[in-house]
């Protein structure tokens, strides 16, 4: 599983390798932009649509048509974390208490504007619970965030 930390450092190293990879399974506009509440339904939707998209024969670079290596591109909260290394930026923002990536996370999780600064603050206070070590995966981080929200009376409405 991907570790949350320093994925970007390794990402840099792997760019060249990715440049040679042909298009991932099922790339195309069809699977680009399906939103889901927690990501999962949209995964299914995207993979359904994949079947109708014909340009996998092009052999183009995997990124060119917006194909994520995981084959999904949604902005639901969980998959936002899972998508290639955003986790690291989220962790950094959480440790500091605010930032672009943390805002993106709260927006994608459907947290209302009025609750976002509270979300930032709660996540800052609970950094140790969300990212207890460097091996936290996206799925674990998502579960940890969910647990923290469940224990907060203002945020528990957003927990799944």
């Amino acid at each position: 599983m991907k570790k949350y930390l320093l994925g970007a450092a390794l990402l840099g190293a792997s760019l060249s390798a990715q440049a040679v990879a042909p298009g991932g399974p099922g790339c195309g506009w069809g699977n680009l932009v399906f939103e889901g509440k927690s990501g999962l339904p949209s995964h299914l939707l995207a993979s359904l649509v994949n079947g109708t998209s014909g340009n996998k024969t092009f052999g183009m670079t995997s990124g060119t048509n917006g194909c994520d290596t995981s084959g999904t591109l949604t902005y639901g909260g969980k998959s936002l974390l899972a998508m290639n290394g955003m986790l690291e930026e989220v962790a950094q923002d959480m440790a500091v208490g605010h930032g672009d990536a943390l805002t993106a996370l709260s927006v994608s999780m459907g947290i209302k504007p009025a609750d976002r600064s509270h979300f930032d603050q709660v996540m800052h206070q609970n950094f140790a619970a969300v990212f207890p070590n460097q091996d936290v995966t996206a799925g674990q981080a998502f579960d940890h965030i969910n647990n923290v929200m469940k224990n907060d009376k203002q945020l528990k409405v957003y927990a799944s």
Binding site: L6, G63, M94, N133
Partner: peptide
């Protein structure tokens, strides 16, 4: 050329650095 990156296997030195980076963030939080 546009690429998607997927992290590659980390070396032991990288793992130690990651552990340390996580500790800096913990301290900061």
């Amino acid at each position: 050329l546009d690429n998607n990156g997927d992290p590659v296997a980390a070396t032991p030195a990288d793992t130690a650095t990651e552990r340390f980076a996580n500790r800096i963030l913990l301290a900061r939080s």
